[in-house]
């Protein structure tokens, strides 16, 4: 708790990030109070510009942009969180084991890791959609993306684990008869948690970005409203040409707010983890 307060006081980026993300989360939680289910269309008059009755206007499909957006951002955030959480598990296991074991295990895991960093994921995900078609769902995409998106962070975690390996307390634990699993989960895990949190934010950004891109192109399950799906439908109805700009503008605006918020949180956490830059900030 003290850490959070300190961050708030000394780190402007963190404060802004919290405010932005807080706004987005509150907006998303409004979806529970929505008067309409997300997939119903023609519940309100179509193509009404923003007004008091419909603060963000309505779509050409007769949906209220405000309430639709609450569902969309909730699903988008949840998606990002699910991918980030799942891929954290993979990167933690691989990073910690590689850093601790060293030698040949480390080499094998790291060449695997470098492979996943290099491979262009987008065509693979498109291929995945292409063979799945209507069977494509929110959960499947999340699973596929977390299997592909762990590599960069595993490398970061490994570099910390390597330095932890040479610390005295690791030797002590080995001599006191702890198994590798015990050492990793009880001794090393707490040390890498801060970096796991900051990479969680980064990974959410990454996965939300990919999800938005895929669904804008129509390459996901287009019946679950997410920010990308919203933009997809707006494009399908040529909203910009028809002058229904509010259908595009507000989703884009909201998702950009979410991106910047997550990014600022990740950056400020990284800075906080690095004692050198933290000191720099506090002293002046």
């Amino acid at each position: 708790m003290r850490v959070v307060l300190d961050l708030f006081r000394y780190n402007r980026e963190f404060a802004i990030g919290v405010v932005l993300l807080g706004f987005v989360v509150i907006f998303a939680s409004l979806s529970f109070f929505s008067p309409y289910p997300p997939n119903d269309s023609f519940v309100v008059p179509p193509d009404v510009p923003p007004s008091w009755a419909y603060p963000l206007g309505t779509t050409s499909r007769g949906q209220d942009v405000f309430w639709l957006l609450t569902f969309a951002i909730r699903n988008t955030l949840l998606f990002g969180f699910a991918v980030a959480l799942l891929s954290r598990i993979l990167s933690l296991v691989i990073g910690l084991v590689a850093g601790y074991a060293g030698g040949i295990v480390d080499r094998i895991l790291m060449s695997l890791n470098d492979t996943f960093i290099v491979i262009p994921l987008f065509p693979i995900l498109v291929l995945f959609y292409f063979v799945m078609r209507d069977k494509m769902s929110w959960g499947l995409l999340a699973l596929a993306m977390s299997c592909l998106g762990w590599a960069y962070d595993a490398r970061l975690i490994r570099s910390i684990a390597m330095s932890l390996r040479t610390r005295e307390f690791t030797e002590t634990s080995i001599f006191s008869g702890m198994s590798m699993r015990q050492i990793l989960t009880q001794e090393h895990l707490p040390y890498v948690m801060p970096i796991v949190f900051s990479t969680l934010m980064n990974n959410m950004n990454w996965s939300i970005g990919l999800e938005v891109t895929l669904s804008v192109l129509g390459f996901t399950d287009i019946n679950t409203p997410t920010i990308g799906v919203l933009i997809y439908w707006a494009n399908q109805h040529t909203a910009l040409v028809a002058g229904v700009w509010w259908w595009i503008l507000f989703p884009v605006l909201l998702v950009v707010i979410a991106f910047v918020g997550l990014f600022l949180l990740a950056v400020s956490m990284n800075e906080h983890i690095d004692p050198r830059s933290r000191l720099n900030r506090v002293t002046g």
Binding site: N205, G209, V212, T213, V216, V256, V260, L262, F263, V267
Partner: peptide
């Protein structure tokens, strides 16, 4: 830095 976290699609759009 402001443009960095925004995905390619949105910036291009």
């Amino acid at each position: 830095m402001a443009f960095h976290p925004i995905p390619y699609y949105i910036v291009a759009f």
